[in-house]
Design a protein around this nucleic acid. Sequence first.
DNA 1: GTTTTACTTGTTATATCATAACAAAATTCT
DNA 2: AGAATTTTGTTATGATATAACAAGTAAAAC
Lengths: 166, 166
Amino acid sequence: MKHEDAHQHVHHNHNDCIESALSTAEALCIQQGQRLTKVRRRALELIWESHRPLGAYQLLAKLAEEGFNSAPPTVYRALDFLLGAGLIHKVESMNAYLGCAHADKAHKGYFLICDECHNVMEFDYQDIHAALVEKAARQGFELRAETIELTGLCEKCKGKSVGASA
Amino acid sequence: MKHEDAHQHVHHNHNDCIESALSTAEALCIQQGQRLTKVRRRALELIWESHRPLGAYQLLAKLAEEGFNSAPPTVYRALDFLLGAGLIHKVESMNAYLGCAHADKAHKGYFLICDECHNVMEFDYQDIHAALVEKAARQGFELRAETIELTGLCEKCKGKSVGASA
DNA sequence: GTTTTACTTGTTATATCATAACAAAATTCT
DNA sequence: AGAATTTTGTTATGATATAACAAGTAAAAC
Ligand SMILES: [Zn+2]
Ligand SMILES: [Zn+2]
Ligand SMILES: [Zn+2]
Ligand SMILES: [Zn+2]
């Protein structure tokens, strides 16, 4: 078990994350009559193993190492599938993809992205969602999707960069 | 006066938008000791003339038509300058750039993006901003920048796509 | 269980978005 | 004018994403 991601905000057994995500994924796909093929499944695992947003070509390289086809459509098809199934999110401001830990509950991904360590936390904020829907509606706008990406400093990095001077 | 943007959500004299944006830009640049050079100024005008987000290479083509250099760095430098000065925003989910009508007030751009007509409305929502800052802080996160991009159907397009069937 | 159908993958090429690196020119400061 | 700073020109390349069509595979129909 390699553990290059041990510097997470909250320490946890990341293997559990992955296993849980994968079983959810399988259940969801069966339920929806979708096929979680080898390459799709492996793509999802690799995204989870990184535990921070992974670029399409980074993912493609990992897949290629394992014998999958190495042309871009391979990875973009897998990503499209996983996005469509709600199993991952795209972080628009990073052009990168992140596993969703709550794929079973339909929702939008709200992210806190650390400028320093590039860790990304997904957070749920029903209040904000409701407020946005209402605000949009007041302008005659029917809200369908939200991209909420907040950048700054996570707790750990905030400590590091400020600690010495203060 | 060409008026390919007459199908705005709210009709208005768009020339006023542009003039107002340009004078604000000039004032701001002088105030900050920045130089609004020819290419930067013209880039800003062209972004405003489109009145919806413009891709970097679309803008580059327009600049090239007018005799400016046609290599990518030309446009990306202008965009970097304008972004840095707060005169435009980048819409991350579209990889496109939009003039800011309130460049004088430091703020983050929140956008309503229509899936149909691709018009983009910037909206200000201090409540949401405050809630996000507080929510982030509660997780130990120091918020620096926000990407808030909401997609859906604007009032006009909502009418079009639903009207006939209902 | 073979045919038909729908879906998935392979393959090649290309489109789109963005930056690195260094040289030349213009502007500002002294 | 001369030096320092900033801006622009130029060439090359990196990074992200899709189009188009052929081949293969799995599911459904018969
Ligand atoms: Zn999620
Ligand atoms: Zn951090
Ligand atoms: Zn703005
Ligand atoms: Zn619309």
